[in-house]
Design a protein around this nucleic acid. Structure first.
Length: 556
RNA sequence: UGCCCCAUGGUGUAAUGGUAGCACAUCGGUUUUUGGUGCCGCUAGUCUUGGUUCGAAUCCAGGUGGGGUAACCA
């Protein structure tokens, strides 16, 4: 037995220490708290894998709780999409889905208790006045003229706020901490505001809604969360989180902050992703170019590959920018193992085997997946007239070009070895057809020809090939840090070639593909049948290209 | 400008007072009926100055650099 060396991230270390000291009676209970105001993206996947992963590791639980305290931005459809994405990623939340709005009554009661304790007050100041009186980091704020209202008056006003007697913005509930506090979040923060908006779950029941800081910590407390994991920008909120809970002497979860995921060539802000959707730059939240979970799903990413990526990047507190190649590696790694190999020609060039009988068709057997021999073989029609990839031919090729050129010999994958004897050009001098001869004794699997061919090309039989729509996706942005420029918008870095739609010639079996089915188009990349794909109108999305050693070599 | 956080190869992340390891990327080799995959290997790192210690990536202090933070958003 070899002893497994454990390598824990800093959060796991904290949890193991808590388990040892019995801080939470040996419980581990995390939560994933999205706001339903947009779709989940790959950054959320990191948080999801962390929260659910920790719970699994320590035999704990994870709540899915929607932080739905701002009805003007939140929608039911986002709730549905988020639930679907989490399930698709392979996680199960504890019991039912929870909502901060489930606790609106509790939260109201907490607010009342704070008022009764003299720790909260109603402020009639305008938003501008409150902002102005906050002071600056170096200048202490000024106390509101309404700060010392009586408990009775505060109670009365708060109840009337709830009843809807005042207009939006007329009054807020603030917590009474310290207007000179060095942490700006502690300068009497607003915790309840009037908002006469329709809430996607509570309808028009409420005229007032709690702010995030108020709702979040108390919700964690109500749910008995042990470790409340969040991103770094909430670090300065923690003192307020702690203050609010301690002010009412409630069960106290521990908030721990970690660094969010950043990917180069990608934007991760929900606001900016929404902008891409609203301005029609992409075709919705699930456009395969989006870094959203649903976009990646449509692109052909698997849950395994996303989980693998999200856990592989690690958890720490330092700012990080992950190279996009790491994401691509994780999906190639998985798709390599599971996808059947098929042949499709993206940019066809006609090739005629002059010594092959006209009208003859052979049924060739090809292995489906060399990584999984148990997946068996399929038959493929071979004939005299074929398509090969245009880029697999060069009229004047360099020595190291292991493909076709005048006089060059290659193997057609799973079929015969051929030699190129000539070509046909159009009036403009473009090569439109290759003339080749084949070696009948070189048939794949029963080759007695003794000829060795360095290159192997994929092909399809023209008479049997099917037209399929192929969507070639590339990165959405040309710049490593699209939103990292002070003088320019991320919109200035859009890649005009992020989507190219072509018609490819595919082997017949691809007509059977159902939406979501994944393939390796040999020598070209991994592709996934699109959501809208049908056998009448087959559509394939390129998930990612294959690694291309030749492309690298020729750059030099 | 206050307060808070952070600093290990190109990029991430380990080592928690005792051999700086792993992954991605890069480069080279090898295998291969995918220039894919697999396998092998090279290059390359503890921000800086001082202190504590037999011994410091690790502890302490100063510096430097980066990030966060002053919504009736989350």
């Amino acid at each position: 037995m070899t002893e497994e060396k454990k390598s824990l991230n800093f959060i796991e270390q904290i949890i193991e220490k808590d388990l040892e000291t019995g801080k939470f009676d040996g419980r581990v209970h995390t939560r994933f708290p999205p706001e339903p105001n947009g779709f989940l993206h790959i950054g959320h996947a990191k948080s999801i894998c962390l929260n659910f992963g920790i719970a699994t590791q320590y035999a704990g639980k994870t709540n899915l709780r929607f932080d739905d305290t701002n009805p003007s931005k939140e929608e039911q459809r986002y709730v549905d999409a988020i639930r679907e994405d989490i399930q698709w990623l392979g996680f199960e939340w504890n019991e039912d889905v929870l909502f901060a709005s489930d606790y609106f009554n509790n939260l109201y009661d907490y607010a009342v208790r704070l008022i009764k304790l003299g720790k909260a007050y109603i402020d009639d100041s305008t938003a501008e006045e409150i902002a102005a009186s906050k002071g600056t980091p170096t200048v202490p704020g000024k106390e509101s003229p309404f700060r010392n209202r009586s408990v009775e008056e505060n109670l009365d006003l708060f109840e009337r706020m709830k009843k809807g007697e005042f207009d939006e913005g007329a009054k807020v509930l603030r917590v009474k901490i310290d207007m000179a506090h060095p942490n700006m979040h502690m300068r009497d923060p607003v915790v309840y505001r009037i908002k006469k908006a329709h809430h996607h779950r509570t309808g028009d029941d409420w005229n007032i809604y709690p702010m995030y800081d108020f709702a979040h910590g108390y919700s964690d407390s109500i749910e008995g969360i042990t470790h409340s994991l969040c991103t770094l920008e909430f670090e300065v909120h923690r003192p307020l989180y702690d203050w609010l809970i301690d002010a009412l002497d409630l069960y106290h979860p521990q908030q721990i902050e970690f660094a969010r995921l950043n990917l180069n060539y990608t934007i991760m802000s929900k606001r900016k992703l929404l902008q891409l959707v609203q301005e029609g730059v992409v075709n919705g939240w699930d456009d395969p170019r989006m870094p959203t979970i649903s976009g990646m799903r449509r692109r052909g990413y698997t849950p395994e590959s996303i989980r693998n990526f999200a856990t592989g990047v690690g958890i720490a507190k330092r700012e990080n920018i992950i190279d996009i190649s790491r994401l691509e590696h994780s999906v190639r790694q998985h798709l390599n193992k599971i996808t059947p190999r098929v042949m499709a020609v993206l940019n066809p060039l006609r090739l005629v085997i002059t010594n092959y009988p006209e009208g003859k068709t052979e049924e060739l057997s090809l292995i489906n997946n060399p990584e999984m021999p148990e997946e068996g073989e399929r038959v493929l029609p071979f004939s005299r007239d074929l398509y090969i990839e245009r880029e697999d031919f060069m009229e004047d090729p360099p020595k190291k070009f292991f493909r076709l050129g005048p006089g060059r010999t290659v193997r057609l994958k799973g079929a015969y070895i051929i030699t190129c004897d000539g070509m046909v050009k159009d009036d403009d001098g473009n090569v439109i057809e290759l003339r080749c001869t084949y070696y009948p004794d070189s048939k794949s699997g029963e080759d007695t020809s003794g000829i060795k061919a360095k290159g192997v090309l994929h092909w399809v039989s023209i008479d049997h090939a099917k037209d399929v729509e192929v969507r070639l996706y590339d990165r959405l942005f040309n710049d490593e840090a699209p939103d990292g420029h002070k003088d320019k918008s991320f919109m200035d870095f859009l890649n005009p070639d992020s989507l190219k739609i072509i018609t490819a010639k595919a082997e017949p079996s691809l007509l059977n593909a159902k939406p979501g089915d994944k393939f390796q188009f040999m020598r070209k990349g991994y592709f996934c049948a699109d959501l809208d794909s049908t056998s009448e109108n087959p559509i394939f999305n390129r998930t990612v290209t294959l690694r291309d050693g030749w492309a690298k070599a020729r750059k030099k």
